[in-house]
């Protein structure tokens, strides 16, 4: 791939790309640790994970600033313009993923205080699936591979399906056993947060498709446009 004639501009764009990847790496790690804290009922791990969010917040601010600087000084066009537009959106999704990891950790701390619920079918699978989606979408971003990003979008249906299964099972348990209410509500929140992670991974994937192909595949079908 040819490089920009202006090497400083080239290095600014590369640095921005690297920062996004690093930020994504951090939030992936946060989600992985949150999932482990939940599975292993490890409140300490949850607490240390929450502390990582500060770095993610700093990443968000710094990446935003870098994008604004490039917009103001370089007036990017074509693929470069799509990259900046994409980075500005990705950074918001990544930061929200960090927040959701914090939310998961908070629930992990609460749940660790109570007796364990017997395993909920589908919950572990949801956690594993959204982590895979996050990893795959960032790989797709790094490789500028729209097809791989589209595959991530398709997987979100499975996340939603699993979520509804978890929801039904939890509601059934809570209606049968009042002592499970408190834990059930926390677990419901966990399922909702995991489902939201799937949505953010989907957003990221749509942003990657836009970056690579210049096609906006959001809400495909709902706007009467061609399917994604």
């Amino acid at each position: 791939m040819p490089r920009h004639t202006d090497r400083e501009y080239e290095s600014e764009l590369r640095a921005l790309n690297d920062r996004l990847l690093k930020m994504a790496g951090r939030v992936e790690e946060m989600v992985a640790q949150a999932a482990r804290a939940l599975a292993e009922r490890d409140a300490e791990l949850a607490r240390t994970t929450i502390l990582l969010d500060e770095t993610v917040n700093t990443d968000e601010v710094e990446i935003d600033e870098a994008c604004q600087s490039i917009l103001a000084r370089r007036q990017p066009l074509a693929g470069d313009l799509r990259f900046i537009a994409c980075a500005l959106k990705m950074v918001t999704d990544l930061e929200r993923i960090g927040d959701i990891a914090v939310n998961l950790c908070e629930r992990a701390i609460e749940l660790a205080r109570e007796a364990a619920l017997s395993p909920i079918a589908g919950l572990g699978q949801m956690a594993a699936l959204v982590q895979e989606m996050l990893k795959d979408v960032m790989d797709a971003f790094n490789a500028r591979a729209a097809d791989r990003a589209r595959a991530v979008v398709r997987r979100d249906d499975l996340v939603d399906e699993l979520y509804h299964g978890v929801l039904r099972e939890l509601l059934a348990r809570m209606s049968q056993d009042a002592s499970a209410l408190q834990r059930g509500i926390h677990t419901l929140a966990v399922a909702k947060f995991l489902e939201r992670l799937g949505d953010h991974a989907t957003n990221l994937a749509e942003e990657v498709v836009f970056l690579v192909e210049g096609k906006d595949i959001r809400h495909a079908g709902k706007r009467g446009g061609p399917p994604a």
Partner: peptide
Amino acid sequence: LFTQPSDRRTEDYITGKFG
């Protein structure tokens, strides 16, 4: 043309990757 050029050469020129 400025957001989604069809030809690689256009992309390279407008993003400053020429010569």
